[in-house]
Design a protein around this nucleic acid. Structure first.
Lengths: 192, 192
DNA sequence: GTCTATATTTGGATAGAC
DNA sequence: GTCTATCCAAATATAGAC
């Protein structure tokens, strides 16, 4: 793997566990196994530049994951409930660290790191846009779809934090059932 | 105001903007206007002890706020939608900083600061317990109430982060409408 | 492009006079 | 209880040889 990828991957892994502020460049250097000078050669912008790249990579990975879950199955409400439940089972078995870190980083950098706030805003926006497209393709109205997907992302991020803090998958399952019930109230043009 | 209150209040305000890791003791000292020695006299446990006190205070304040919103009005779904909408209007006008910071801190400290993770877990638990009592008192089934309140907290925390990042109140309003729609699907013993 | 050495600032925490 | 001075480790970033 390329040096710059090793660096941004190490940054991503550390941010997932500790967030942005608590993650030190020296930790990144050690985890990536690269010398200090190489890091600043590849990322002249230092810590925040690396974090930006790491965030975009994680954002894209989760978009693919969630998109896949939402695309599966005939019934959207059922697919939603299953996606949340599967996330719950994952973190219960694999470990509480295995969580989407974008929301936590978002809260951390929103006021103090304008450049990173915009990166996260881009990630949220693209998640929503891609999700809306999937939902519209299932026959839902565009404005319903946007509201549903926005609420889905909010519920998912919030439930992740609660699950990790309470060491329980229940918040994720509960949020999934709630969002599925909400989705059931929306009209579907094509398939109903 | 007492010295220790000035300290924990300053810590709370700084954590709201920057999170836990990025907030320095020196910043707290300056913001509170107290000398270094006084801080460690009142809080021998240093930074994490102060953060614990600050978190508990913020947790209680938000419990009261949200509890008041949920207790108002005849119709629970309408009260939920209004509570989220009111939060949206607040942060749009007062400022994006004016947000519940508990969720962000939760993500930050979940793996790295076990003592603070437990403090946040206590806060989430008491929010849920108090919310469940309010909802049960309205005639909902206890298990429905617990699931609803858990999802409410998750959606609220997630929507706060999205709103602050996207600089828009819409995620909060959308999440509120979604949760209201979900609440409408639950049976009410007394009033329906 | 890689690597070592180091500059400089800031972190949290402590000591001890008053 | 209050306050000043200070310690020591860690932070990010840079300089310059190779």
């Amino acid at each position: 793997m390329q040096t710059d990828q090793r660096i941004s991957l190490a940054m991503a892994e550390l941010m997932r566990r500790q967030g942005y502020a608590a993650t030190g460049i020296k930790q990144v250097i050690e985890a990536a196994g690269v010398p200090n000078g190489s890091l600043y050669h590849h990322f002249p912008g230092g810590k925040s530049e690396i974090a930006g790249v790491a965030l975009r990579t994680m954002g894209a990975a989760y978009a693919e994951l969630v998109g896949g879950l939402l695309a599966d199955g005939d019934d959207l409400p059922a697919a939603i409930e299953q996606a949340f439940a599967s996330a719950a089972t994952d973190i219960e078995s694999i470990g509480w660290v295995n969580m989407c870190p974008v929301g936590t980083i978002a809260g951390e950098v929103a006021e103090a790191e304008p450049a990173l706030r915009e990166v996260v805003a881009d990630i949220f926006t693209s998640w929503i846009d891609e999700g809306v497209e999937l939902v519209v393709r299932r026959g839902y109205r565009a404005d319903d779809a946007r509201e549903l997907v926005t609420a889905l992302v909010a519920a998912l991020e919030g439930a992740f934090v609660m699950a990790r803090t309470l060491r329980s998958g229940e918040p994720l399952r509960g949020a999934g059932r709630a969002m599925a019930a909400y989705a059931s109230t929306l009209p579907v043009g094509v398939r109903r």
